[in-house]
Simulated scan of single mutants.
Amino acid sequence: MKVLWWSVAALMILLGLLTVWLPIPTGVPLMALGLVVVIATSRKAARLLRNRRRSTPYLNGAFTWVEDRSPLRFARILKRTRPRRKNPDATPNE
């Protein structure tokens, strides 16, 4: 089943790359949906994006903006990649 989803994601990203230059705005949404499918089906991809968001505040802000404006189903997937914050109030176990 994972191979099917990865094939769908690859097709969306490829079609997005091919149509990004057309006057009809289909390229960017197709690439974004392909990315969401990859993140939803791969823990490693989600972890890589989380690390990239942690190291690049501008990218984190852009993804947060997209999360706030996405449908709930897509927003949940993207929120999994938010950088985790350390709790300053937590005391270490002794």
Rank of each mutant, 00 (worst) to 15 (best):
R85W: 02
L48Y: 09
L59A: 09
L72A: 13
N51W: 10
P23R: 09
E67L: 02
S42Q: 06
D89F: 14
I77A: 03
R43Y: 01
L15S: 10
P71N: 04
E94S: 12
G34M: 00
P23F: 08
N60K: 01
S55I: 07
L35G: 08
L11C: 15
N60H: 04
L22V: 08
R76P: 03
L4F: 02
P88A: 04
S70A: 14
L15G: 08
K44N: 05
T56W: 15
R50S: 11
V20K: 14
T91W: 09
L49K: 02
F63V: 04
A46M: 14
I77N: 00
P25M: 04
A32P: 01
P23E: 14
W65T: 11
W6D: 05
R47E: 15
L22W: 12
A40N: 15
M12D: 12
P25K: 02
G27S: 07
F74D: 13
N51S: 15
P83S: 10
A45M: 06
W65I: 05
R85Q: 06
T64E: 09
A75T: 02
R84W: 11
V37A: 11
F63N: 00
T64A: 09
W65K: 11
S70Y: 03
R53Q: 04
A62L: 06
L49D: 03
L30T: 00
V38L: 06
P92W: 12
R54F: 10
G16L: 09
W21C: 06
